[in-house]
């Protein structure tokens, strides 16, 4: 059981990392600029169609579309967090404190992921509110928050953990390229048409598709595949489990690096 000073270091890291990341002008400008990519999709959902018969479906579609897109930016914006500590030698300073390294890492990770998701949440809420007003159904906003947690939050936790871990051992640009390539390969590449084996269509599809389809199903016409609740929970567990493994790897890599400095 961690003592109170350990918890204080966890909360301190979380709070400071959240504030540091949330104060980055580039994060807000970049994310809001990227939101422009989604305007056409929002406008199509606002107009409605046979595939989108009500506010609930519209909000689910709006959020899942954002979940196919935003995690790339989230992963890249989190990729410089540990590298920055190393570059500014803050990591050396932190080694001199009694704070447990893993709790510090968890606090830093959760704070950075939370702050990076903040502009995404605002964009998602803005779109959901517009769609809820369009159909006169305020309850759609709650559905939107639920789908946000099921898709974007899980996806951000997954990619964020790997952005933390991989940048300890890889050149930043190489990681950026591999990450973009991974996102395309693991979420877009169709193994049936390309013949390339991929994680797309498995429970490890990291845009949260299975979780959304299992927990927030939409009419069959809106999606080609329908996941069960068990598959949704399996996907959730696998994605978060992999994220935890990546964080553990990051922890041991940082410890190894500190011991060999």
């Amino acid at each position: 059981m961690p003592d109170s000073s350990a918890l204080a270091s966890f909360w301190g890291a979380l709070r400071f990392e959240f504030v540091m990341q949330a104060r980055r002008k580039a994060l807000w400008i970049g994310m809001l600029l990227l939101s422009l990519f989604l305007l056409r999709n929002l406008s199509a959902l606002y107009s409605g169609s046979a595939v989108v018969p009500d506010a609930r479906t519209a909000v689910v579609e709006w959020t899942t579309f954002a979940a196919r897109f935003f995690p790339i930016a989230i992963g890249l914006l989190l990729a410089d967090r540990l590298a920055r500590d190393s570059k500014l030698h803050v990591d050396e300073l932190l080694l001199t404190t009694p704070a447990p390294r893993f709790l510090w890492l968890m606090g830093k990770y959760l704070g950075a992921v939370g702050a990076t998701l903040l502009p995404v949440l605002l964009v998602q809420l803005f779109g959901s509110a517009l769609l809820a007003i369009r159909w006169g159904d305020p309850s759609a906003l709650l559905v939107g928050v639920g789908v946000f947690l099921a898709t974007l939050l899980v996806s951000a936790l997954f990619v964020g953990a790997f952005s933390f871990a991989c940048t300890i051992v890889l050149w930043p640009v190489l990681y950026q390229f591999l990450f973009v390539g991974y996102w395309f390969w693991g979420n877009y590449v169709n193994p049936n048409t390309t013949g390339i084996p991929t994680l797309n269509g498995t429970l490890l599809t990291s845009d949260g598709r299975f979780i959304q389809e299992g927990l927030f199903p939409t009419p069959p016409a809106a999606h080609l595949q329908n996941a069960t609740v068990a598959q949704a929970l399996g996907s959730l567990g696998l994605l978060l489990g992999c994220a935890m493994l990546a964080l553990l790897a990051a922890h041991y890599l940082l410890r190894w690096r500190a011991a060999h400095q």
Binding site: F37, I72, Q176, Y188
Partner: peptide, 25 residues
Amino acid sequence: VFRSRVVSAAILALLWIGQFLFEPL
């Protein structure tokens, strides 16, 4: 413009993915 490497990388990455995702558009 953004005086930030990661924002530049993020926009480039989304532009790249967007070429596939928004191809019909």
